[in-house]
Design a protein around this nucleic acid. Structure first.
Length: 291
DNA sequence: CACTTGACCTGTCCGC
DNA sequence: TGCGGACAGGTCAAGT
């Protein structure tokens, strides 16, 4: 669920809230998800000031003045919600797009409290997510980020780079290849389905069978879909919320994802849900022909 | 080695 | 109504 656009939306939100704030305390009872030793937490987190909030792939990196960073992965049901002191929930916006009420709630795993009384809540219903405190210089070297592929929205990501990255997995289907974080960073189930629909590629197509023309279409579709989703604040299916606890609206604009039974916006044929690469997969069987 | 499947979790939904 | 089971999907580990 949180894929690149969702994590980027959280990053943008937190960038407006966290820099300059000083961590006063941290409360959690989740050693599996936040395994750092208490002594390191006291030394490098408590009293540290937030300098910046960055993102690599689907990992958020909160840089601290101590030379350490918090690396956070939301996995499927993670939420990072900021509340100003006083705990006002909705700010000036519309409560109707808020998915979280009073915090902490039963899914709250970690609470960061800042010296001004504001708080950052890490909620994760399914506890797949994680938080790590580690030296900023080593943040890029944690196993996951070490192996991860290029950022699809970086200016030097071209269709030829996409082709080169995909060529590492010639005999697998394009859906599995796009989901593979070592091929390209940040793509998950939603944007795989949406971009393959945009490029009129069946998700079971083997990578080696894709022509350059198709790869160019896929490149364009992928970048467009990611950019549009960031513009719409990401996709909220069930859990995802931004740093204010609000829903994203991309799924309103989605063409196939979670739209089985509805007509394809391009040709009118019925969208169906199939299973590819072990994932629920949404396609228009008319636009996206099998190989 | 290349690729696929299962495990990790918990809440929700469906069928009996 | 209650309950078991399937399902959701990001990533790593184990299996083929």
């Amino acid at each position: 669920m949180p894929e690149l656009p969702e994590v980027e939306t959280v990053r943008i939100g937190l960038s407006g809230f966290l820099p300059g704030r000083i961590v006063k305390s941290v409360k959690h009872d989740w050693p599996k998800g936040f395994p750092n030793a208490e002594t390191d937490v006291r030394k490098f987190l408590i009293g540290a000031k937030v300098m910046a909030v960055k993102r690599r792939a689907k990992v958020l990196l909160i840089e601290l003045s101590s030379g350490y960073s918090l690396a956070i992965h939301l996995k499927m049901t993670g939420q990072l919600v900021f509340r100003a002191s006083g705990g006002e929930q909705f700010g000036a916006g519309h409560p109707s797009d808020s998915l979280v009420g009073d915090l902490p709630d039963r899914s709250t795993r970690v609470i960061f409290t800042f010296t001004d009384g504001s708080k950052l809540f890490f909620n994760d219903q399914r506890k797949f997510g994680w938080v790590r405190l580690l030296p900023t210089a080593e943040a890029q070297n944690i196993d996951f980020l070490n192996k991860v592929g290029p950022e699809p929205l970086s200016t030097d990501f071209t269709w030829k780079i996409l082709r080169e990255r995909l060529s590492r997995r010639p005999n697998t289907n394009i859906k599995a290849a796009l989901l593979d974080q070592t091929v390209i960073a940040g793509i998950g189930n939603i944007y795989t389905d949406e971009s393959l629909w945009g490029a009129k590629i069946h998700p079971s197509t083997l990578v080696k069978d894709l022509s350059d023309a198709k790869l160019k279409k896929l490149y364009t579709a992928l970048v467009d879909v990611l950019r549009l989703s960031i513009e719409k604040g990401g996709s909220t299916d069930k859990n995802y919320v931004n740093a204010e606890g609000r829903r994203g609206s991309y799924l309103t604009f989605a063409n196939v994802f979670r739209r089985e039974g509805q007509p394809c916006p391009r040709c009118g044929h019925e969208i169906v849900k199939i299973r590819v690469a072990g994932r629920g997969t949404h396609i228009c069987p008319h636009c996206q022909k099998s190989v």
